[in-house]
């Protein structure tokens, strides 16, 4: 993958069995966002081929209708006046054809995901008035509103408190198990996820490791990814990764 003549991601090769819950970790600038955008077909690979849900996202952008995407929250200007319900409905309406009218089914489904993410009480509120964690939940609700088969999340835990993080993790796990959704989640915060994911990818301009969390959670591999000393500490039979700075 090359942007501005500079390769951002090289030698990527991996496949994910559906449904599964995959976490991607790597330092700032590792190309995590780029990886997600490539899967969406927004960024085109210079070489090689990607198949998303069995389809090529560059040649067949229609596959985007089956994918839910939660962008990095910082990419959205919170001062733009939009109601929470408009944002959640957008998840369904943007994937419809012109004139994108909301049917009662659209409304019902949007309401349902709002309840699921506990943002129902903000339905008629302005997005700008919500806290960071509430805004994040609204963005996840928007992605889920279209009932995607594949869900891509870009750092959904940044500036989100622990209860919200736990709510999100539990909910995402349920989506994989009950609805068969495949999830690829980019994060700095691996510890909350370790017990809940099926696969872990260490990324820094290339795939350093990809596999079951137990196999990948190796100090040497983590240090290679983050280019600094990272330790894996065992406590109460749980493993905790330390030394990764969450915010750069």
């Amino acid at each position: 993958m090359v942007l501005n003549q500079q390769p951002i991601l090289e030698d990527l090769s991996f496949s994910i069995v559906e449904p599964s819950f995959v976490a991607v970790v790597g330092p700032n600038g590792a190309g995590k966002t780029t990886l997600l955008k490539t899967m969406l077909g927004i960024i085109k690979p210079v070489e090689g081929e990607i198949r998303v849900l069995g389809r090529n996202p560059v040649e067949d952008p229609g596959v985007r209708r089956l994918v839910g995407y939660v962008p990095q929250r910082e990419r959205i200007d919170p001062l733009i006046p939009v109601l929470v319900k408009d944002i959640i409905l957008m998840g369904r309406l943007a994937k419809k054809r012109f004139p994108r009218r909301a049917t009662s089914e659209d409304l019902e489904k949007a309401r349902q995901v709002a309840r699921l993410l506990e943002v129902d009480q903000f339905w008629e509120e302005s997005y700008a008035h919500l806290s960071g964690g509430q805004q994040q939940r609204v963005l996840v609700a928007r992605a889920l509103a279209s009932e995607p088969s594949l869900l891509l999340l870009d750092e959904p835990f940044s500036a989100v408190d622990t209860p919200t993080t736990q709510l999100l993790v539990r909910l995402l796990r349920e989506l994989v198990d009950k609805s068969g959704v495949t999830i690829i989640l980019v994060t700095h915060e691996i510890n909350v996820l370790l017990k809940h994911i099926d696969r872990l990818m260490l990324l820094n301009r290339r795939i350093i490791a990809f596999g079951k969390p137990d196999e990948v959670l190796d100090e040497a591999l983590l240090t290679e990814t983050f280019l600094k000393r990272v330790q894996v500490v065992a406590s109460d039979g749980e493993r905790i990764v330390t030394g990764v700075s969450y915010h750069a």
């Binding site: 985007r64 994918v67 995407y69 990419r75 939009v82 408009d86 994937k95």
Partner: peptide
Amino acid sequence: TLFKMEFKYITFDPEGSSAMGL
């Protein structure tokens, strides 16, 4: 008036809009 939804979406979140196929 015809494209008010589209204009709203690309103004609020251009990246997310194109991810949704707009």
